[in-house]
Write a protein that binds this DNA or RNA. Structure first.
Lengths: 214, 214
DNA sequence: TCAGACATGTAAGTCGTTACATGATTCA
DNA sequence: TGAATCATGTAACGACTTACATGTCTGA
């Protein structure tokens, strides 16, 4: 019985973009998708093999320009049909697991100074992530303006979008990649805004305590 | 060998607030913590029992005001020490799994109208959630102004904060609950803002196609 | 030459959900 | 009286991570 979980369709969906190896998929996900998805090799390779068994993907040995033996997987028409059916189905609500936020929620017993330290640590992490996203956004915008593509994307976006089988609108793909990036930027931006809000609220508390002599 | 995963400490942390039953914990998490944490009974009850075995929590049978037999778990001093150590440790980065976002990323082969339909569905879901959070925020602010507490919180917040053993700052807890709520509001707000951005970008695409005669 | 990236995979174990089983109490 | 909620738990399964194992190629 084929297992048809989210990861199954997610991988199928990535293959619908272009044929890729397991390693390619891992890199792509790490590079630009990690703010809403992730996958480990322990899922990736077995799932790819099962997709082939089910006839939803085909495996090709590629000894091409890289001179390294690798398995490239391509989606089959059957796989494409299943993928497109999944695409139109309603999605599960977003699931977030934010360990810091939980700790913050439980930190009322900590001295305020300690909470502030933890909060700043979190803010700095998120700030780094934010800067990284903004940089990617700049790269992408410059590239679109110049009609080129940033190096990391050259492999992902076909140079000639119309070559992609049945693609209704080639430039749409650029837009969608851009919007996906924007989603990450806005999400992390909201976390940063919250950090500032929380920091100033906690500092007020500390001020009040000092004035009361605590 | 005791298992010490995140859920373990999360539950310990909730018990550090006040003694609770497994059922109480489930309700509390569903009520106000679900935008950054969740737990199922299948984890909750076994974990509570293991906490007792390890001496980090104690179990009491409560036949009190509710006239229903229930198991109330209280944190022990040993449990409190472990919890506070965990509280100061660095946190894992937030993990998000957003199925809709992934689908959107992969939707370039869908007709734009279809993408817009999916996007609106998502926006409406998030809008509902947002309104719900705003309502909770209003309730909490009114309650704080009047010196009362909203019904759902009466059981969670001790009426007299200073009664809580070793609590350094009673009012801090109200503030932290409020800030936790704000975190949810800002996060969902960012998703909504993104939806509008994406919708108008997609509508532009559609307009361009129409003008070109596609 | 050797570090680091490329590349593929498995085994074991953990984490977490879902479905099931059971029964009491409350309130309309 | 019967639906909803209170309340506790288990078994089976499914999802996912980590550690391990192995070897190649590239470029400083």
């Amino acid at each position: 019985m084929p297992v048809k979980n989210k990861t199954w369709f997610a991988i199928l969906g990535l293959l619908s973009w272009k044929p890729m190896s397991g390693y390619d998929i891992k890199k792509l996900v790490e590079m630009g998708l990690s703010h809403f998805w992730s996958a480990s090799y322990g899922q990736l390779f077995p799932t790819l093999n099962r997709l082939v068994e089910e006839g939803l993907a085909s495996r090709h040995s590629d000894l091409g320009h890289r001179k390294r033996k690798r398995h490239v997987y391509a989606i089959t028409p059957k796989g494409r049909r299943q993928f497109e059916r999944w695409l139109r189905e309603p999605s599960d609500p977003p699931r977030v697991r934010n360990e810091f936020e939980f700790k913050f929620f439980l930190s009322s017993r900590l001295p305020v100074e300690e909470s502030i330290r933890l909060l700043k640590e979190y803010r700095d992490q998120q700030r780094k992530l934010y800067d990284h996203y903004l940089e990617s956004e700049q790269d992408l915008m410059i590239a679109v303006r110049d009609g080129t593509l940033p190096r990391e994307l050259e492999e992902i976006f076909p140079a000639e979008p119309s070559l992609v089988e049945n693609e209704p609108s080639g430039s749409n793909r650029n837009l969608i990649f851009f919007l996906t990036l924007r989603h990450g930027i806005l999400a992390v931006g909201a976390r940063l805004a919250w950090c500032e809000e929380a920091l100033s609220a906690l500092r007020n508390t500390r001020g009040r305590e000092r004035r009361k002599g605590n």
